[in-house]
C-alpha cells in the first residue's frame, strides 16, 4: 500500500461510516439520540474531508476531496468491510460503532506520533472526537447488554454478527509502519482490552475468533457497498463538471 492508499483508507473509513450514520438522522429511538448520532456523523464526514484532501495532495493529480468521494469506483475504495455493514437496528448500529470506535481512537492516537506533520495534525484533531464517540457507543453497548433480556440478546447477536469483520482492522501491512508511523497490528492489544472490558460490564461474551472477512482495504467489498455508493454518488455523476 502506498502512502496515498493509506491516507485514502483513513478517509474512506470515516466517509462510509459517516454516510451510514447520516442516513439515520430523524429515525433514532429518541430525539436526544438523533442529535448525538448526527454529531458523530458530522465528525466523521469532517474527518473524511481532511484525509481525502490530504490524499489528493499526496497524489498530486489535482483531485479534490469531492472528486475522491464521488467519482471513484467501488474497487478504488479502501475502507474496511466493517463500516459498510448495514445499519440494522439500534443494537447493530451501536455494535458496529463501538467495535470501530475502540479501534479508530487507538489508531488516531498512534498516528499523532507520525513523522508527517500533516498526518499527525489531522489525527490529533480527530482523536478527540473519536474519544467521545467511543464513550458514547460503549455506553450504549453497556446499557443494551445490561438492560432487558431482549436488549441483551439483540446486542449479543449484533456483536457476534460483526465479529468476523474485526480481523481486517489489524491486517498487517509491511509498508504501513514506515509510511504513516503506526502499525495496525500494534494497537490490537489495546482494542482487545477495551472490547473485553466493555463487554464484561455489559454482561456480554466476547465472541471466539473464527474465520475473519477481509478485502475492503484492497477494494474487494461486500454487496452493500455498491448501493451505498450509488446513492451517495449519483448526483455528481449525473451532472459531470457541475459545481454545487
Amino acid at each position: 500500500m502506498s502512502l496515498f492508499d493509506h491516507v485514502l483508507s483513513l478517509g474512506d473509513n470515516a466517509l462510509i461510516l459517516g454516510q451510514q450514520l447520516s442516513a439515520l438522522t430523524g429515525h433514532g429511538p429518541v430525539l436526544e439520540e438523533d442529535i448525538a448520532t448526527a454529531n458523530i456523523a458530522l465528525d466523521l464526514v469532517g474527518e473524511a474531508r481532511l484525509w481525502l484532501s490530504l490524499a489528493g495532495e499526496i497524489e498530486g493529480a489535482g483531485r479534490s476531496e469531492d472528486d475522491l468521494a464521488f467519482l471513484r469506483d467501488e474497487i478504488d475504495f479502501r475502507n474496511v468491510l466493517l463500516v459498510e455493514q448495514p445499519n440494522g437496528d439500534f443494537a447493530d448500529t451501536m455494535a458496529r460503532q463501538f467495535l470501530f470506535d475502540a479501534w479508530h481512537e487507538a489508531l488516531l492516537a498512534a498516528l499523532c506520533a507520525s513523522a508527517d506533520p500533516r498526518i499527525a495534525g489531522i489525527a490529533g484533531k480527530c482523536r478527540k472526537e473519536a474519544l467521545y464517540h467511543l464513550s458514547h457507543s460503549a455506553g450504549w453497548v453497556i446499557r443494551l447488554g445490561d438492560g432487558t433480556a431482549f436488549s441483551h440478546d439483540r446486542m449479543q447477536q449484533a456483536v457476534r454478527n460483526l465479529w468476523p469483520y474485526t480481523g481486517e482492522l489489524f491486517e498487517a501491512d509491511a509498508g504501513g509502519t514506515a509510511l504513516i508511523g503506526a502499525n495496525a497490528g500494534d494497537i490490537r492489544p489495546l482494542w482487545r482490552q477495551r472490547v473485553a472490558d466493555t463487554l464484561a460490564r455489559a454482561a456480554l461474551e466476547v465472541p471466539a475468533d473464527r474465520w475473519m472477512q477481509g478485502g475492503g482495504r484492497r477494494g474487494i467489498h461486500s454487496e452493500h457497498m455498491g448501493r451505498l455508493l450509488a446513492e451517495m454518488q449519483h448526483i455528481p455523476r449525473s451532472h459531470p463538471g457541475a459545481r454545487w
Binding site: 466517509l15 454516510q19 447520516s22 442516513a23 438522522t25 430523524g26 429515525h27 430525539l31 436526544e32 438523533d34 442529535i35 448526527a38 454529531n39 456523523a41 458530522l42 464526514v45 469532517g46 473524511a48 474531508r49 481525502l52 476531496e65 469531492d66 468521494a69 464521488f70 446513492e231 451517495m232 449519483h234 448526483i235 455528481p236 451532472h239 457541475a242 454545487w244
Partner: peptide
C-alpha cells in the same frame, strides 16, 4: 433528511446534516 445521503458535495453533506440536527435540537 431525505437528501443527506445524496448531497452532492461533502461540504453540502456536512452543512445539511448540521442543519437537520439543529431542527432536532429546536424540537427538543
Amino acid at each position: 433528511g431525505n437528501w443527506i445521503t445524496r448531497a452532492p458535495s461533502l461540504l453540502r453533506k456536512a452543512t445539511l446534516l448540521a442543519k437537520v440536527q439543529d431542527e432536532g435540537g429546536h424540537g427538543l
